[in-house]
């Protein structure tokens, strides 16, 4: 197992603090060395419980998470992180590569899934993509972290929203990212493919139905009548648009 207290850093300062949760010492060392060579800061642990504590106590830009771990399994770690309201991006890196395993990983709140043995270049590319996407999300959309539409309000930083009926809602990372992507379009239509590309980056989900389901969830949270939405509007056959003023017509 990797030394849990290991932290490696190196130039060039591409930035990004990455936690590698992997109980195979050689793999953890190899991954950390390569991340450091790419300019990231990397730490590693092989224990599920320790990983959970570290993720909750620190601000990582990305977590590479194995599934079969000592003590607590990777899926549970991910679920606990999301339950605690942390939206740190998580990339599952595991020998378990069946469709069921992938669905479980992504359902637990993972952002991406890579099976062992993997290509180093692919791993580095995925790391870069997730961090880029996270950077994009971190940039304020038109200076706004608070999005107000009608009597609703969404705090993109806190991943929370208050609906027209005063009810508080937690937003998943993907829901918040979709809101941001739609908001940046300033009322223009955003296609489903563009949303997938912007928010998911890789084709980890099998179809654009995922977007439809996610929009349904947003409507249920923030629309007075989810069947007749005025903010999250479907443009048939194309995609979606977000109208902060509402579509009363």
């Amino acid at each position: 197992m990797s030394d849990p207290n290991t932290e490696r850093s190196g130039a060039p300062a591409r930035g990004g603090r990455i936690l590698v949760v992997e109980d195979e010492r050689h793999l953890a060392e190899g991954i950390c060395e390569n991340l450091v060579a790419e300019g990231y800061r990397a730490e590693s642990t092989g224990e599920g419980e320790v990983a959970l504590q570290w993720i909750l106590a620190n601000e990582y830009d990305l977590v590479l998470l194995d599934v079969m771990l000592l003590g607590m399994d990777g899926y549970t770690v991910c679920e606990e992180v999301r339950k605690a309201g942390k939206q740190t991006p998580i990339l599952f890196l595991t020998a378990k590569g069946s469709v069921d395993d992938r669905i479980r990983g992504l359902g637990a709140g993972g952002d991406d899934y890579l099976t062992k043995p993997f290509h180093l270049r692919e791993l580095l590319a995925r790391v870069q993509t997730i961090l880029r996407r996270w950077d994009w999300y971190g940039q304020e959309a038109g200076g706004a972290t608070l999005v107000r539409f009608g009597e609703n309000e969404i705090d993109l930083r806190a991943f929370r929203g208050t609906a027209w009926d005063g009810q508080e809602h937690e937003l998943t990372q993907k829901e918040a990212m979709v809101v941001k992507a739609l908001l940046e379009a300033k009322g223009d239509v955003v296609s489903r493919d563009d949303l997938l590309e912007t928010v998911w980056g890789y084709e980890v989900y099998p179809s654009t139905r995922t977007i439809d389901t996610l929009l349904q969830r947003l409507r249920k949270k923030f629309e007075r009548d989810p069947d007749a939405p005025v903010y999250f509007i479907t443009v048939r056959g194309v995609g979606y648009r977000f109208l902060t003023e509402g579509n009363e017509s």
Binding site: A95, K116, P117, F118, H119, L120
Partner: peptide, 19 residues
Amino acid sequence: HELKSPLASLRLTAETMSL
């Protein structure tokens, strides 16, 4: 797990040397 982990490590080390 037992076959893929050392295999993944082998590939990673070889690719690291190559890269």
